[in-house]
Design a protein around this nucleic acid. Structure first.
Lengths: 121, 121
DNA sequence: CCGCATCCTCAACGATACTG
DNA sequence: CAGTATCGTTGAGGATGCGG
């Protein structure tokens, strides 16, 4: 029951730095949620905004820009239509986040179950 | 390459909610870093502060409290010593975060490699 | 060594309105 | 539909100092 050392001392800083790098890209309230929505096939701006509960247009716009800068999505404009259609598509690179999202979602689900049972008011 | 739909439409909201729950506990700048340090066997307050670059005592104190509230660590006081020794130990429950931390650290490492190669700027 | 109290700053986020 | 502009808020986090 006591403490189990999962990471060796040497790996500690390494892990912290790696997580830091990941958080730099994925941190904040919305990035991961947006990525999940993209993974689910939602591509249009308003579609995303509707799907992601509580996000404002301004914030969504900003986040999308950052995600594009980091190569996680591609902004595609279909200029040959009226009105102009803009699509946000997850890149191949974003697919490498599948494990991260999976692990996090998995844990979140278990955790919710736990606190529901524990029921600490 | 185009878009691959990784999550079904039905699972989208479910995933987003689960990630939301996880982020509620793990969100912010420090929680995961602290957990990594705990995993690595650092147990003392100042030890943690030294190991986690840039965190202030106030913030560390707050984060530790929250992590304890969420059952991820246990605050143990050795009262029979002078001065009093306080230890923070990761709980069994915290060990369930191993996959999350692993996935994130893994991705962070790959990402760093990528942006180093891409060398934007 | 442990960690709280105080005060402060800043950036992220929110709300609303408006344009092409 | 796809955003931008503007303004306001809030809370996480930083700095410092003190007390047990």
């Amino acid at each position: 029951m006591d403490q189990k050392i999962i990471f060796s001392e040497v790996q500690c800083t390494k892990h912290i730095n790696a997580v830091e790098d990941a958080l730099y890209v994925l941190g904040g309230k919305w990035k991961l949620r947006i990525i999940i929505a993209l993974f689910s096939g939602y591509t249009r701006f308003n579609e995303l905004q509707r799907r992601i509960n509580g996000i404002s247009a301004r914030v969504l716009s900003n986040e999308l820009k950052q995600l594009e800068l980091n190569g996680l999505l591609k902004r595609v404009v279909q200029a040959d239509q009226t009105p102009v259609v803009v699509e946000y598509l997850a890149t191949e690179y974003a697919a490498t986040l599948k494990d991260v999202v999976g692990a996090l979602a998995d844990w979140g689900q278990k955790h919710k179950k736990k606190i529901t049972i524990t029921d600490n008011v």
